[in-house]
Structures are given as structure tokens and as C-alpha cells.
Design a protein around this nucleic acid. Sequence first.
DNA 1: TTGATTGCAAAGCATTTGCATGCTA
DNA 2: TAGCATGCAAATGCTTTGCAATCAA
Lengths: 176, 176
Amino acid sequence: MANEKKKERFKEEKEIFENHIKKKGLRRTAQRDLILEVFLQTEEHVSSEDLYWLVQQKDKSIGYTTVYRTLKLLAEAGLAREVSFGDGKTYYEHHYKHQHHDHMICTECGKVIEFFSPEIEQLQDEMAEKHGFKPTYHNLRILGICAECQKEVSSADSVASGAQPRIRVIGSRFSK
Amino acid sequence: MANEKKKERFKEEKEIFENHIKKKGLRRTAQRDLILEVFLQTEEHVSSEDLYWLVQQKDKSIGYTTVYRTLKLLAEAGLAREVSFGDGKTYYEHHYKHQHHDHMICTECGKVIEFFSPEIEQLQDEMAEKHGFKPTYHNLRILGICAECQKEVSSADSVASGAQPRIRVIGSRFSK
DNA sequence: TTGATTGCAAAGCATTTGCATGCTA
DNA sequence: TAGCATGCAAATGCTTTGCAATCAA
């Protein structure tokens, strides 16, 4: 994305956060500003822990708790969205003006590939309607083996042994 | 499902479990047999805790740990599948000779509606192929408001306040 | 000044592990 | 008999909460 456009979006996101804070009768603080700032600089998915360490690099005095609480606030404000990849941690991804997407997760290396299919979205809405269900959010994960890991793994042992994804590495350069 | 057919399936599942046990050099025990038996009698989704209490009703001496460990075994054997509905607990659903399905989860009452769409399945496989990704399992959750709760909720407050599903009640009689 | 916010430590939860005892094969 | 299984208690890992001190409005 062009740098100008990005800056513009950041500005909007900061405004949204400030409005949310105001609307709920909360207070703007240096910590919250910094955490939002750092979050905006991230790409893809960050866990609370990830963000904590990133924030630490800018200000050692900020506590774990504050990062947790602020991430919840960001989610409430509609700037972030909580996602889980099956390793027990909560990850946050950008929500504002970011196209919704789904994830393929490699159970070998933990890589996360983002994808988007308007056809799947549409079918989901149709299924929901069929049940009188009003969808607010959805979330599709495909677990499997990514292209690289397919080359490396010859035997199917690791798959047969009840593979449970233990995701560490998050990253994908496949999606657009 | 007809009762005869069910009995037949239970028998197959017990055999599968025994084979899995043997293949891995493990041992058949009364506890494992009972836990499998109780699991087979359940419908829909059970948490480890749910199953623990059900098992307790038949044998007070069985510990939490054994239920946990046995559920993992069942998943390994292909009889159960782990699913999560966003409340931090792990649920188990039947896997053997049960058609794959996805879930709609009501963020108001926690009801879980099962559904299946061959079209969505197909599109998922196509998306995976496009990325050279070999899918082993997938998992689609649609969060929203079920038909009943839509009637009751007039204001949109509960939705706007960053609703996080805290699912307790699991059950659905909508799906076939 | 008032009451929200912070950071620490402690508490909560679901799940896992260590270990002595018990039991299958 | 060997060594896997069990059940308890303790440990773990992530997240939340209580609270006194601090700070925004």
C-alpha cells in the first residue's frame, strides 16, 4: 500500500480510537496511544505477547496487563479482531479497512496463509439465512500442509500421530 | 438413526479404538472402555468437563486426568475431533462415520447450529489447491444471532459492546 | 478533585505433568 | 514381571482481577 494512504488510514484509526474512548467515558493515556501506535505498525497477526515485546522496545515501563486491556479496547473499537490459530493464544489482526480474509494454517511449520473467496462468503450468508441466523462475523480455518512442507515430508508419520498445530511462526507472503 | 445401525457403529468404533491401542503398544483398561462407552452415547459436542461428569455418574473413581488423556486418544484414533467455540474450552464431537459439518454459534445464547454445505467444501478445496496447500481438516464458524434471540433483542447494545462469545449451552435441534 | 488507569502480584481456568501405586499383557 | 495407566497434587501457560498509587479531565 502507498505510504500516503497508510498514513491517512493510521490517522483515521487514531480518531476512531479516540472517539471510542470518549463515547465510553474512558480516558486517553500515553500508554494507550503508544500501544495503538505500535499495533498500527504491525502486519498480519500479533499475539498479546508479541505486542507486549514490541511495546517494551519503546517503553520499558508499560505492563503486560495494560497491553492486554488495550487490545481488548482496540477490538471493541473495531480496529482489531481476535483470532485463534489453535495454539491456545489469542492473536489480533487489523480490522479497519482491511478486507476480511480467512486462514490456511500449516500444521508442520505453523505458517499462516491468508486468502479470500467472495464465493465462500456468499454461500455462508446463504446458509445463515436458511437457518434464520443473522451473522455478525465468521471465521474459516483450513489446516493442512503448505507447499514447502509437502516437499520435505516424505512419510506421513507426523500427520498420522494426531497432529495438533502448535503455531509459533506467523507469516505469509502468499496472500495479496 | 435406527437403533440397529447405531449399535453396529458403536461396535466398529470400539474395534477401531482397540486397534489403535494395540498399534501404539498401549493397554486396554476398564477406564478407557468406560470413557469410550460414555462418549459414544453423547450427541453433538462435549467438553472434557462434560464428559468427566457423565463418566462420574458411572464410576466415581475415574479422574479428570484420565478423561483428558482418553479424549486425546479418541481424537488420535479418529473417533473424535477437537473443536473450539471461542470460550477457551476444547469440545469433542463425533468423527467416525459422521458427516463433516460446520457451526453457527449464537453470541447471545450460545446455541450451536450445525450445517453442511458441499458447495463451501468444494470451494475450500479449490482455494487450497490454488495455494499448493494440502488440506487435512477445516473448520468454519459463523458467529451471529440465532432466530430466537433476534426476536428478543430489540436494541443492538449487546452486539455493539464488542460481544465476545461466552458459550455455555451447547445444543441444536435445527440441523439434520 | 474525582474517578479512570496503571502495574504489580495474586488469582482463575483449562490443561498438562511428575510420581508413587496399580494393573494389563 | 515389565512397564504402561491411573489419580492425585502440583505445575504450567494464558488471561483476568484486586488494589494502592498515579494521572487525565
